[in-house]
Nucleic acid binder design. Sequence first.
DNA 1: GTCAATTCACATGAAAGAGACCACGGTCTAGTG
DNA 2: CTAGACCGTGGTCTCTTTCATGTGAATTGACGA
Length: 400
Amino acid sequence: MQNELMKFLESYAEKKSLFLEKNVFHPHYKPSALIHRSEQIEQVAKMLAPILKLEKPSNIFIYGKTGTGKTASIKDVTDCFAKIAESKKIPIKTIYLNCKLKHVSDTEYRLFAQLAREFGKTMPATGLPTDEVAKVFFEVVENAGQAVILVLDEIDQLTKKTGSEVLYNLTRMNEELTKSFVCLVGISNDLNFVDTLDPRVRSSLSEEELLFPPYNAVQIQDILNERAKLGFLPDAIEAGVVPKCAAYAAREHGDARRALELLRVSGEIAERSNSTKVNTTHVDYAEDKIDRDRVLEAISTQPKQSQAALYSIISTSTNKEAPVFTGTIYEFYKTLCERTELRPLTQRRLSDIISELDMLGIITARVISKGRYGRTREIIVPSTLNTPTIKKLLEEALNL
DNA sequence: GTCAATTCACATGAAAGAGACCACGGTCTAGTG
DNA sequence: CTAGACCGTGGTCTCTTTCATGTGAATTGACGA
């Protein structure tokens, strides 16, 4: 055994990597030119163009599914503007914020605090009243006397947590600013997001709208080929690989990010299995592996209570495919808490946790009515889930 | 047999609490000259 | 006299609890044929 491992490692060390540059597959890697997005980039640039004359452009709202190049395109545009602004000495400042980042910008307070920090103010993580922080930000913008492009990525996450008041405050800002102005660029994955907004906010936030359509399989292939050229050694991938990755990704709403991940993992698997080329079976393995890893990752990063809940679900639903119900799970969960000295939560909370687990896609839960016998959630553990592994993982996490 | 009322077992919402953070201003304390 | 330690108050933020209300269809039971 030891010997075999040694041999493997030796040959591994000798063998040349299939990769040339792995970074090009990273989701944040920025290629020199975005393909199949020039039209959108041009539109955004035109919409923002007035800012170069220090006139306030319309606020822009951009939406499209994940992995359709929204963020990359915007960054591309703002980079260009930054360059021009620098060379022509136009006072433009671009701020990019992802509203989903925990503990950075996922609440109104944190958003304003973070924005103020962008202007070099030191802001405490908590402790000040929210309107105070907002005021600090207003003042600092006003005094800076600059045109500000404020890009809020995943803006739907922000309003989902805090309500649309934040956006209302932001859109109203310009009325109070005299020496500066702020141009908002909102980016959302949720196509219906605008409809859920307060009408006041909606009209001012989406003065201009832009839809990023999903890539089709051919476009994804182009993107993959482009990156593969940079990332893999020449001839490292077989002919069918790229189309297959593209097909997988296109099937799932044209997510380029996912296609790239698939290609990278395929490469890693090929490398690990000591083959000299990436072939289509590697892609199949990769697809499978990504799914499983994602689930395991999601589970292990869950808080203890959610893990306990999931453990209860898996333990209760021993006979495969047979649904379990909230009540049963709660009973099991209570005894589990006794064993693990975990403070038992109320059923109300457990119910929420279960639906969170459903959102994560780990389990399938839907509300059904059993007529006379009440209404409950029917929970099914998907057969694709690797229950033994997960159970072991959870037992470890919960010290069972 | 038909149909509305009933009933179950939770789901779902809203509000409020607990406890961990943190800033700020006032008071106390010990070290300094 | 002053810097720093130490409070108390008031703020945010997350996770929960409490209380209240909602809900969909199997079941029941009254009613009529």
